[in-house]
Design a binder for these strands. Sequence first.
DNA 1: GCCAACGTTGGC
DNA 2: GCCAACGTTGGC
Length: 137
Amino acid sequence: MAHWLIKSEPGHWSCRDQMKAGRKGTCWNGVRNHSAKLNLMAMRVGEQAFFYHSNEGKAIVGIVEIIKPYYPDPFDPTGKFGMADVRAVEALKKPVSLDAIKADPRLAKMALVTNARLSVQPVSESEWDIVRAEGGL
DNA sequence: GCCAACGTTGGC
DNA sequence: GCCAACGTTGGC
């Protein structure tokens, strides 16, 4: 089972907002490039992803689950991009900051570090476990 | 098909 | 708010 990391600006859509959306979940859109789109298309129902706050906070703050796989975004004027639906699973007890990730050599290969602008990225099994543990889960 | 110009993202 | 990094666009 693959794991992922998705980004959101908390001023626009935060992990707290995602929690409030409850079990029904919400669509997650905003993909603007093709690597992110390919990752989004590779997601399967039931897989989990970290929820990362960019700009404000700059930390992994929670975990979401994919509840609907990739589908085209009917509001995308270019017709190129799509979205998936996710729902909140749980918040980390302690956010894992970008600084902490950069400071941990085991996490140095995360796309968050090497390709900061990619908004949907895969997370390896070991990275997933390390970040979960760092987050107090 | 190359590459310069432009727009967007995101850390600082 | 600034600017570096990167992806995309469009002229040639």
